[in-house]
Simulated scan of single mutants.
Amino acid sequence: MAQQLLVGLGEDQVATATDARASVAFHPKGAQLLELEAEKQSLMKDAWLTATGHQRPGMKKGLPLAEAQQKAAALTKQQKALLR
């Protein structure tokens, strides 16, 4: 779905991308941006699962939600710096 939104916004180079890495390959720092996003998503997933009291076996314990949000904000700041 995101791929079609980007194409609609004029980012035609992602039209033929088959995965996330291919969709950011056109950007010189695309791989770094993708790694930061994966880190942020994992961080927040674990924090939310812990905050909601999940009972799934084998899941690692996440940071307290407020701390995870601060770290996620720092990762977003790093992403924005890469886009400049």
Rank of each mutant, 00 (worst) to 15 (best):
residue 71 K to Q: 10
residue 38 A to V: 05
residue 25 A to R: 13
residue 59 M to I: 12
residue 11 E to L: 15
residue 69 Q to P: 01
residue 20 A to P: 03
residue 39 E to C: 10
residue 73 A to V: 02
residue 77 K to M: 00
residue 19 D to N: 15
residue 50 T to L: 12
residue 15 A to G: 06
residue 62 G to M: 07
residue 32 Q to M: 07
residue 57 P to G: 14
residue 51 A to C: 13
residue 46 D to M: 12
residue 9 L to V: 02
residue 37 E to A: 10
residue 63 L to Q: 05
residue 26 F to V: 11
residue 78 Q to T: 02
residue 35 E to G: 06
residue 4 Q to D: 14
residue 58 G to R: 15
residue 69 Q to R: 11
residue 76 T to E: 02
residue 51 A to L: 10
residue 14 V to K: 10
residue 21 R to M: 04
residue 12 D to F: 01
residue 3 Q to I: 12
residue 19 D to V: 13
residue 10 G to N: 00
residue 61 K to T: 14
residue 43 L to N: 04
residue 10 G to E: 00
residue 6 L to A: 07
residue 65 L to Q: 04
residue 23 S to N: 14
residue 70 Q to L: 07
residue 58 G to V: 15
residue 39 E to F: 10
residue 23 S to M: 15
residue 55 Q to V: 06
residue 45 K to E: 08
residue 32 Q to A: 14
residue 64 P to D: 04
residue 69 Q to S: 09
residue 25 A to K: 13
residue 66 A to H: 09
residue 65 L to N: 02
residue 73 A to W: 00
residue 51 A to P: 14
residue 79 Q to W: 01
residue 44 M to F: 02
residue 78 Q to I: 01
residue 39 E to Q: 15
residue 76 T to V: 00
residue 11 E to M: 13
residue 56 R to M: 12
residue 17 A to D: 08
residue 59 M to S: 09
residue 12 D to Y: 03
residue 79 Q to F: 00
residue 55 Q to G: 14
residue 28 P to D: 04
residue 33 L to Q: 05
residue 18 T to S: 06
residue 38 A to Y: 03
residue 64 P to T: 05
residue 5 L to R: 09
residue 25 A to D: 09
residue 32 Q to F: 08
residue 75 L to N: 04
residue 26 F to G: 15
residue 26 F to K: 12
residue 10 G to I: 00
residue 73 A to T: 09
residue 9 L to A: 08
residue 47 A to R: 13
residue 47 A to H: 11
residue 22 A to T: 13
residue 40 K to F: 03
residue 80 K to L: 09
residue 47 A to F: 10
residue 9 L to W: 06
residue 40 K to C: 04
residue 63 L to W: 01
residue 16 T to D: 10
residue 48 W to Q: 09
residue 60 K to R: 15
residue 6 L to F: 07
residue 38 A to R: 06
residue 70 Q to R: 10
residue 40 K to Q: 10
residue 68 A to I: 05
residue 5 L to D: 05
residue 11 E to Q: 09
residue 48 W to K: 12
residue 56 R to D: 10
residue 12 D to V: 00
residue 60 K to L: 15
residue 78 Q to H: 01
residue 18 T to R: 14
residue 63 L to N: 02
residue 7 V to W: 00
residue 75 L to H: 03
residue 19 D to S: 14
residue 71 K to P: 05
residue 40 K to V: 02
residue 15 A to W: 00
residue 34 L to Y: 11
residue 24 V to Y: 07
residue 61 K to Y: 09
residue 56 R to I: 10
residue 7 V to I: 04
residue 5 L to V: 09
residue 44 M to E: 01
residue 61 K to V: 13
residue 8 G to N: 08
residue 13 Q to P: 00
residue 41 Q to V: 14
residue 9 L to P: 00
residue 27 H to A: 11
residue 77 K to N: 08
residue 53 G to Q: 14
residue 18 T to A: 08
residue 45 K to S: 07
residue 70 Q to S: 03
residue 64 P to C: 08
residue 56 R to F: 11
